[in-house]
Design a protein around this nucleic acid. Structure first.
Lengths: 136, 136
DNA sequence: CAGTATCCATAAAGATACTG
DNA sequence: CAGTATCTTTATGGATACTG
């Protein structure tokens, strides 16, 4: 059986088979974290495809479909189909997805808390690097 | 001057100027999170350029330099130069970097905790999608 | 040693058109 | 409505060679 090709990759972030690597790679897509946030924030818990697109400005149908498919494959998102014409498809977070959102929330919190500090660091860095005193 | 084009993008993850977006984008590089982890784990707190490369197998000099530069610009990493010949450059996390690592640690923890679940979800998904019962 | 510069391959994302 | 297919553009990373 194909139980696991990764014997004990736990903690070995540098092995491509490492779980953390995989998660980070999945989240590194441009839209994944936004989709998760939308689904997490939805009071009803479910969002339809077109709604999702409306709520994530700039995300093409292609990227929406691709992102949702990946997240569904990972067990983070649930896809529910109502077979009407026209069809209705509803997306929501699974319990696993909810817990992932909680982990992501720490990062969001960090970012909001330290956004100013990062901004200041960048300004300072740019000031001393792109024209550090040797410019006309 | 490039002070800020984002008046109050706080919480607006869908604005490219949003702090969370920026952080997630920075972390989405292939090497950033690994570099942060190495620096966080280093007992001495400092790691030299060549050491870092040795400890992150597969990372080219180019990517090491680029990643470190971005993280330094963000105020997450500190670069200390000993002007000898040959030169020695030491990298460490700033306090800001340490706190970022703490936020990242939640994600690492989630990944390790749920790696099996994700794996199982993928297997189940693949089983029912690439040959869901309509195959010769 | 600690990088930089350059060129090249690939992967990710966008635009557009079309379908059940 | 909820996607898929296809093509083009752009971003990312890798290989190699060179420098203070």
């Amino acid at each position: 059986m194909t139980v696991s090709t990764a014997p004990d990759a736990r903690g070995d972030l540098f092995d491509p088979a490492c779980p953390t690597r995989q998660i980070l790679d999945r989240l590194s897509g441009k839209w994944s974290s936004m989709v998760i946030k939308i689904l997490a924030e939805e009071p009803a818990g479910e969002v339809r495809f077109a709604d999702l697109r409306r709520r994530v400005p700039g995300m093409s149908a292609k990227m929406a479909a691709q992102t949702l498919k990946e997240l569904e494959r990972d067990g983070v998102v649930l896809r529910r189909v109502e077979a009407l014409t026209p069809p209705r498809v509803h997306y929501s977070l699974t319990p696993l997805g909810v817990s992932l959102d909680a982990a992501l929330a720490h990062l969001r919190e960090w970012a909001e808390l330290h956004a100013h500090a990062v901004d200041r660091a960048r300004t300072a860095y740019d000031r001393s690097h792109d024209n550090g005193g040797t410019n006309p």
